[in-house]
Design a protein around this nucleic acid. Sequence first.
DNA 1: TGTACATCAGTGAACGCGCGTTCACTGATGTAC
DNA 2: TGTACATCAGTGAACGCGCGTTCACTGATGTAC
Lengths: 182, 182
Amino acid sequence: MARDGGVIRARLLDAGMRLAQAGALSGLRVDEIGAGAGVGKGTFYVHFPARSAFLAALHQRFQDQPAVRIERTTAETAPGLARLRAGSPAYPDGCRAQSAIKAMLLGARSEPEIQHEVAAQNARFGALVGGEFRAAGWPAPEHAARLWVGLVAEGAVAEAEARRRQPPLRATLARYLGATPV
Amino acid sequence: MARDGGVIRARLLDAGMRLAQAGALSGLRVDEIGAGAGVGKGTFYVHFPARSAFLAALHQRFQDQPAVRIERTTAETAPGLARLRAGSPAYPDGCRAQSAIKAMLLGARSEPEIQHEVAAQNARFGALVGGEFRAAGWPAPEHAARLWVGLVAEGAVAEAEARRRQPPLRATLARYLGATPV
DNA sequence: TGTACATCAGTGAACGCGCGTTCACTGATGTAC
DNA sequence: TGTACATCAGTGAACGCGCGTTCACTGATGTAC
């Protein structure tokens, strides 16, 4: 594992993502994950102490992608609603490049085994967004942030179901922020 | 069952709600439900053909309460954003009276066994809300409606976690609709 | 009123299966001399 | 270069447990005569 740079571990995670496209996180089976990665069932436990740790790693890996994308997009914008408007499309874009969105965004929060990790992730994200609302002078920035995160996630799920970008949906998102496009 | 007016069936559903407070829907065990209702495990199958049917009934029963409440609240308001503003607090209020909100609102959509029923419920709700946005002249009323439903649900979950009404959160919800309170 | 019989909700032990986890083993790779 | 040994990722059969579902039985209630 140290020697091969984590190739098999990565392949297991890849397989997990692929399988999560089809169903919920709770539907992932250890042996299917192994089979999907082209390794035996026992190999799974060489790389992960338990199924729940795998789920947590999978979720983390999923969230990394939109997070990185948002950072890159907004690095040079000043805090405030403008930055939210600039950064929010990055979230569905970052998700859309991945396949298991619905399982991740809908299922993860209610998966008891990883609820804690997921909540932590969301809180970190919420804190970031809260800063923007505070800079914009909204009266209850934490609440606004929480709702906004939920809104963006819902939008991402909708795009995932439609299987393509939905500009009117993104415009509607922006409108919720207070912009009123024609 | 016909004779007793469905008392035991109701007690099973009550027990299900009570148990769903603690964990996810997927955590509900048939024998625990029976025990919670004070009946034997086998009795469960006298009243429900399978566990999945029970989950669907539970979710339906949960959604009925906010639905009724919204109808009652908005019956005499004209269509449009005003009606959304008037009706939306009814949703968290209707949920808050119940205990299993998080399981219902977060978990149900990703529970493969009842996904279909849940989606149907949401669609019905979304169509209703879509009418308001259309009346208000929003450019993409279906998208707005879907996002709004998600937003209200997220707000209800947040209130459930806080275990009390959150007026600033509700004000923030209203603000997303375009009102800009001081 | 009393007796025999039918019905059916309720019961919980037993069944069966799926699946996460373990473990003794294999064989490839690295190291010492 | 060759030999012996150590290490450790990979393997899959076997284990064990939890849990949904079944089923033969009980006993209360209703009905016929």
